[in-house]
Design a protein around this nucleic acid. Sequence first.
DNA 1: GCAAAAGTGTTAGCGCTACACCCATGG
DNA 2: CCATGGGTGTAGCGCTAACACTTTTGC
Lengths: 234, 234
Amino acid sequence: MIRLQEDFYSKNDKMYVATDCIIFGFDEGKLKLLIFRRRVEPLKNSWSLIGSFVRLEEDVDQAAKRVLTEITGLENVFMEELRSYGKAERDPGFRSISIGQYALIRLDEYDKELVKKHGAHWYEIDKLPELVLDHNQMVEDALERLKRKARYKPIGFELLPEKFTIPQLQQLYEAIYQKELDARNFRKKVLSLNVLVKLDEKDKSTSRRGAFLYKFDHENYQELLESGYDFKIA
Amino acid sequence: MIRLQEDFYSKNDKMYVATDCIIFGFDEGKLKLLIFRRRVEPLKNSWSLIGSFVRLEEDVDQAAKRVLTEITGLENVFMEELRSYGKAERDPGFRSISIGQYALIRLDEYDKELVKKHGAHWYEIDKLPELVLDHNQMVEDALERLKRKARYKPIGFELLPEKFTIPQLQQLYEAIYQKELDARNFRKKVLSLNVLVKLDEKDKSTSRRGAFLYKFDHENYQELLESGYDFKIA
DNA sequence: GCAAAAGTGTTAGCGCTACACCCATGG
DNA sequence: CCATGGGTGTAGCGCTAACACTTTTGC
């Protein structure tokens, strides 16, 4: 881009702007988080979220996407800003602020080799180790946001494979809300929303009988939105 | 604070971090916004939100509070982070990101002289002029947030005087939601929450009969929260 | 034939919405 | 006495939550 020649603001302070990704996944009925060992001083080798400094020529959300792609090989992932972390003393290296971004990824799609190469690991959300700086706070905030948001927006589906069963979906919501749900009421509710398409296929991996697979119907969801929102799960 | 001697991150880019305040008020049955004429180049004299660069030694939210106090004379105002604005090309002066913060203030409390001295003006929310940079977007986002949040948290009360009448409260919610509400249902709902204290005083400024004044009951609200949240207005 | 998960309906209670009239008072 | 805004009750509907049994099938 073209910059004005003079830096009008030069009497003010500059600092580093970082972005950190809170990456959620869902596997074995558990919510999981992708963290890794920090590769730079200070606090080298401590557990940390995955992040990067924002470069002068890139948007903040571009920076977050760049990092996510580097580590998982995925593009077009659901990612949304959580909030900023701007305490003056948050980083012992030098004054920096970080924009937390949370991402939801499908555990059957990411590049496992790439993740391993970066020293990243999946941890169950309630068994996380201590993370550097304010990263545990970021995780806590992200989890709270996920809980609230999953209730009114169909973001939960971002954590499931394209095809999923109703019991899987219920397990996911139970993991997010951290409470058990009634199977009959849950099924009734999600089906009544009219945003699931039943497929002619069954998943037999968890029972002899097998459970029908469904897909999320993006078109019907758009229609639902346009006719005055009403989405709500559990 | 004590900084490490070496700047570990020095191969990365630094930039300006600003914070901009979206300041709401409520008067004459209308939602209003406090804006002013920008005093620095570039875009000097254009309409703008009130903001500041964040200094190396201050927290981002401290910076926002500093600005708010400078302009209104108020402390302890409700203020909350909206989100960050981090597009690479958002500021023609130099690369900067801004953290938007929205604030709710009582129009009977702020320092009118101070506001005038800073060249600030109250505008009705739906009659705003064009603002610099991405500030119109910030206002739009803040209004959306206010609409959503006022429904589940008692933040609306931050816009009213300490003592207010039910019809005033209703007017406020009508201004926020931009739709009319039924007076009987509204009264029933807010009183059923058990977070209002009826006073032995009437406000006679808007009718011959006068309307009873109420206060928000912070203690009862805390109890309500602790016994499993349930707050919801309209 | 049995174990284990998938799938299916009904009822009661609660909260929301819609709706029309009397009350108090100052002028 | 009248104009103006303040204040009150009820009935119907839809959503939610609670709850138990039958179906399928691989072993």
